[in-house]
Design a protein around this nucleic acid. Structure first.
Lengths: 125, 125
DNA sequence: GAACAATATCAACGAAAATTGATATGTCAA
DNA sequence: TTGACATATCAATTTTCGTTGATATTGTTC
């Protein structure tokens, strides 16, 4: 696996980390500030290994930061990654925004032209 | 199934629809405007039933709209749902962000009393 | 250093999601 | 009407994900 994944892969991974209710609950709790795992556990009423699993998914996606203090682990939101998600989402819905580093072979497009290289199809005119 | 799901469930479902590379590619293509399925198929080089499956996921999440014209189906982005995703995301990464270094109990007491009901824990003081 | 507490990791399993090939449905054109 | 085409749906399979219970790890306290 490459150190830094292709943008679409990365975006999919971010959205995947956000696609689970338990993880969203965790993030909502963290929105109010740093929390210790034991607090999260109490508030979510989740089995310890289950919580740990979801924290790991969030951590590996870069959505939370962790910090050890004695025998406790504290988690916070990683705001810069949220900014990244916002940007990715904007790119999807948003206007044009030509992003460098094109995915496939198709997009060798010229400057202004939006649908520059539309693949030739035999159907739908 | 309830007609309208609880917000977290809905949010998770939206992110799930966005958590697949193929679907993201589809959305990127639609970003440039309406496309017929056959065009998408040519540009993505995806098996027909696979594409159809992903279009259905997007449709059921409300992220795209479809329209039939003769024997062709045209898809477009459903911008209002993207607005919804934006809002959900904003709610998560929300207003008063969690700053990593911040004192952990500090914000609890402020105006809105956000953490009003913090569960009592026996650990981490 | 032994017992303990907080958390992470692992292995096994079940459940949900994605892929594939086949078939069904709807529309046009001859 | 019949046949061809565009697309959707289905059934079977594979893959990925989440849960659970057990164990490992790290740090603390006596």
């Amino acid at each position: 696996m490459p150190a830094v994944a292709d943008p679409l892969t990365r975006t999919a991974a971010l959205f995947h980390a956000l696609s689970d209710e338990t993880r969203l609950e965790i993030l909502e709790l963290l929105r109010d500030g740093e929390r210790c795992v034991c607090e999260l556990q109490a508030e979510l009423d989740a089995a310890q290994s289950r919580l740990s699993f979801h924290l790991r998914v969030l951590r590996e996606a870069g959505l939370v930061n962790d910090r050890r203090e004695g025998r406790w682990m504290y988690y916070t939101l990683a705001t810069s990654t949220f900014a990244e998600v916002h940007a990715s989402l904007a790119r999807l819905s948003g206007s044009d925004a030509a992003v460098p580093g094109a995915p496939k072979t198709a997009k060798a497009a010229t400057a202004g032209a939006k649908r520059a290289l539309r693949v030739v199809t035999d159907c739908c005119g």
